[in-house]
Design a protein around this nucleic acid. Sequence first.
DNA 1: AAGTAAACGAGACGGTACGTCGTGTCTTCCG
DNA 2: CGGAAGACACGACGTACCGTCTCGTTTACTT
Lengths: 192, 192, 192, 192
Amino acid sequence: MRDLEARDRILAATLKMLGELGYTRLTIGGIAIEAGVGKATIYRSWPNKAALTLDAVRTQLPDIPVDDVGDSRQEVFAVADTLAALYGSPKVRLVLPALVSDAAADPELGRRLREELIQDRKRQSATVLQRAVDRGHMPKDTDISTVLDMWAGLMLFRSLFFDLTFDDRAIRNLVAATLDSPPRVTEGPEAD
Amino acid sequence: MRDLEARDRILAATLKMLGELGYTRLTIGGIAIEAGVGKATIYRSWPNKAALTLDAVRTQLPDIPVDDVGDSRQEVFAVADTLAALYGSPKVRLVLPALVSDAAADPELGRRLREELIQDRKRQSATVLQRAVDRGHMPKDTDISTVLDMWAGLMLFRSLFFDLTFDDRAIRNLVAATLDSPPRVTEGPEAD
Amino acid sequence: MRDLEARDRILAATLKMLGELGYTRLTIGGIAIEAGVGKATIYRSWPNKAALTLDAVRTQLPDIPVDDVGDSRQEVFAVADTLAALYGSPKVRLVLPALVSDAAADPELGRRLREELIQDRKRQSATVLQRAVDRGHMPKDTDISTVLDMWAGLMLFRSLFFDLTFDDRAIRNLVAATLDSPPRVTEGPEAD
Amino acid sequence: MRDLEARDRILAATLKMLGELGYTRLTIGGIAIEAGVGKATIYRSWPNKAALTLDAVRTQLPDIPVDDVGDSRQEVFAVADTLAALYGSPKVRLVLPALVSDAAADPELGRRLREELIQDRKRQSATVLQRAVDRGHMPKDTDISTVLDMWAGLMLFRSLFFDLTFDDRAIRNLVAATLDSPPRVTEGPEAD
DNA sequence: AAGTAAACGAGACGGTACGTCGTGTCTTCCG
DNA sequence: CGGAAGACACGACGTACCGTCTCGTTTACTT
């Protein structure tokens, strides 16, 4: 770990200690020692623990597979698999609630959280679903945003409150049911 | 506020300061002063800020309407309305993520959170949906647990990440869509 | 200990715990439990820990032998022995400094300390020395007050700072030297 | 007071508040505020109130004049004057009993108290008296340790219990009497 | 003998200080 | 001369006692 740049050592130390201690018992001082770095070096790059943790965890998260492989069914399953891995990941379970909580008093953190963690991936997922709609695999009036929020919400909810993650079969059922009869766009309110 | 029992003064002060400061800036010492109480009096009844806040917020949450009013459609809409009020309430948005975060290092808190906040209401909601199934308003193989987690997940997800709560029309759409074609029980894993 | 009056149980518990814990770690609550008594019962009889401890220790202290046994030499030795036992006693070593310290902010305690512990015994001792003067065993202008303060001061000083108490031989030397050539009354300031 | 190092600000604040409040009402938190310092900064240098107060008071105490001025009578008077100033000083009266009391449960404090406050000055005083003996101003078998303990004990005793300090005349009498006929070394036990 | 009041044990209470820990800033000093 | 090391002001933590107070219960006195 000695040869890495300070920034990488800090992020690595953050992830290591996050796993060992959880978010609450994580301390900037502890990370500095673990990374062999002065505290000031950390504060030069991040304003607080939340921002640092956000960056550290972000590096660990899978990207949504958006490539066109010709088969929309296959593409949508891949997206759902990735979302399940994302919202079911131990790191997310440890960190996301804490960041959401801190974001209540830190608008910039809230913005980054929504934009860089959630929206970014939601937009990518949406392109895949839109392609499915375009190809006629889903109804023209499918409410893509609601489909994605419902999937994410269900996965996160079960991960947080029931320690359950989605296995292949559960994902297959969920996606299959949604493809069959997804929520439709109505004149009701629409997210995002 | 002077004549109330200490316990009630503490819970009231907790809710008041929670609204003013948010969870992170909430302090036991501050609550003690606001409630006109010694810190030790708080610690005599609650082991930490999380447990206190859980109790304080719990008193504010609506109960699920489980009464049989003859019309399952109406009953289910009432349940969904209440769930939306629950998961969309400002107090829950402020507190739930923090409690989930703290629960990672506090099993007893986790247990109370799941049991007293989530499961309790999920069980009550399930009785109403089960009645709808029994009456033939929903398919016999409806996966009630998934329906409820999906509703709750969607509501909570939108409340936390998009500051959106569900209005009447959105609830009506969601429930209508679900009653029409709910997720079915399969041989896949089943939550709870 | 059950049948004793509350007051006696309290004093006994105080002495017991004083020996076990020292003055600083002595607590009213602890004494109350040890004595099987409510705290209020203690506060009904004593205003604070210092007053209680003063009373408790006072019961343990030897009285100055003032009886006329015909032989002043013997009487003075007896007085000196008793003073040595008094100022060298472990209880006094534990308690006297603390009481003197507390007395700085508690005039009534100071008064009782001086009057009931110190002056009382000094007066009794003085009668014996005065008798020795009257009998011609000591010079007519002997400064009795200074003799007694010097003895007490020396004994207490060595007890507090050197853990030394006076044995028979040391007392014999001290008294013999003083009888031979005691400090005399001068036009200088005179204590008490 | 702003430009001084933290350590000096703390010691100054301690002395100031000691004078205003006395030892018992002195608090670490209060000193920290007065010194414009965090509590942790105090605890980094001193383990408790007693150790801090000991250091603060120690800086205020006069040193024993040990210089050889040719005239032992004059030297001894100077020593006695200084001892009287030492044991009669208001700070010592406020602090010494409390420190002695705390020392019962804090061996390290006891050691420092005896060594740095008492013994140190006793040793210096002893060199002056020894010089007087060597010069023939006092008998060869003078028990110097007892002379010094007797002086200190008398001064402290009167200071603590009678609010009396020694003025020039009293010191002159005391020293003169001792020089004439001091306590002698015997085969009895000898302090220190 | 029953009724009443005082004294009592138990311990909750408001409050103050404790000693520890983490934050985010600032200084020192080493490589 | 840039960065590690860590001192620093600040403020919250959770604990321990203080001295006051309210509870029931027992005890002893009155009627």
